[in-house]
């Protein structure tokens, strides 16, 4: 175990995840991580209440929906207030396996890099083919617009050192946030690693309408281009 003396915070942006948020938190706690921050992004259900039963004041709430990027940034800011040394972001729908957190934090603890990107595409078995194609398109546009090639530019499972969390300053609120982080890594010349992660595509996570689909993908691309020209 490399984590013993390091203050690791897990940030979970969540929108209408009341059904599953407690099981996600419990699974992370079982994996050995007690510092968990949930940001309820203006949900219409009781996501925050469900989370607060397990983590108390660390269940934050956006009064209005700002998007995954906005909620993640709030969570990272909160982790900084709690003096986090390493910050891990993980999706709130249970698609990521908390057992992978150790793989993501280890290179940072060993001072091998500033950012670790969980990637679904190094070992993409079980991933729906349309998601693989969509991710490759996302990677291409991220490289074209932001200048850095990574194998999974849309993954939300990432770990940041305190140094990286202080430098990275994103402005995007929606799904373009994930690509904007890549831009910041490139901009500040942060060292990074890509680590393969397991993804669990459940009926629950696949059924969520606000996920990155084709139309949302086009919106994300438009926002990425807009952020460059505006």
């Amino acid at each position: 175990m490399y984590e013993k003396n390091v203050k690791i915070f897990i940030v979970i942006p969540a929108f209408n995840e009341a059904q599953i948020i407690q099981s996600v938190i419990k699974e992370i706690q079982s994996a050995g991580y007690q510092n968990i921050i949930v940001v309820d992004d203006g949900s219409t259900d009781d996501t925050q209440k469900q989370a607060a039963k397990l983590i108390g004041e660390k269940a934050l709430r956006h009064k209005i929906n700002r998007g995954k990027g906005g909620a993640t940034k709030t969570g990272i800011e909160a982790a900084k207030i709690f003096d986090a040394e390493i910050i891990v972001t993980i999706d709130g729908d249970g698609q990521h396996d908390p057992k992978d957190i150790g793989k993501l934090t280890e290179p940072i603890i060993k001072n091998h890099c500033d950012v670790v990107l969980g990637t679904r595409l190094i070992n993409s078995s079980g991933m729906p083919y349309y998601k693989i194609i969509a991710n490759h398109i996302g990677n291409f546009f991220t490289w074209l617009l932001f200048g850095l090639w990574v194998t999974d530019s849309q993954s939300g499972f990432r770990a940041y050192s305190r140094h990286a969390a202080e430098l990275i300053n994103t402005k995007s609120d929606r799904y373009e946030y994930d690509s904007e982080v890549i831009r910041e890594i490139h901009l500040y010349k942060l060292s990074y690693k890509e680590i393969p992660i397991a993804v669990r595509y459940t009926a629950y996570s696949m059924g969520k309408t606000q996920k990155q689909g084709f139309i949302n993908g086009l919106k994300t691309l438009y926002k990425m281009i807009w952020n460059i020209i505006s």
């Binding site: 203006g42 934050l60 956006h62 940034k73 909160a78």
Partner: peptide
């Protein structure tokens, strides 16, 4: 929205 959410902590 962020400042409001962080106010408590």
């Amino acid at each position: 929205t962020r400042n409001e959410a962080l106010k408590e902590i």
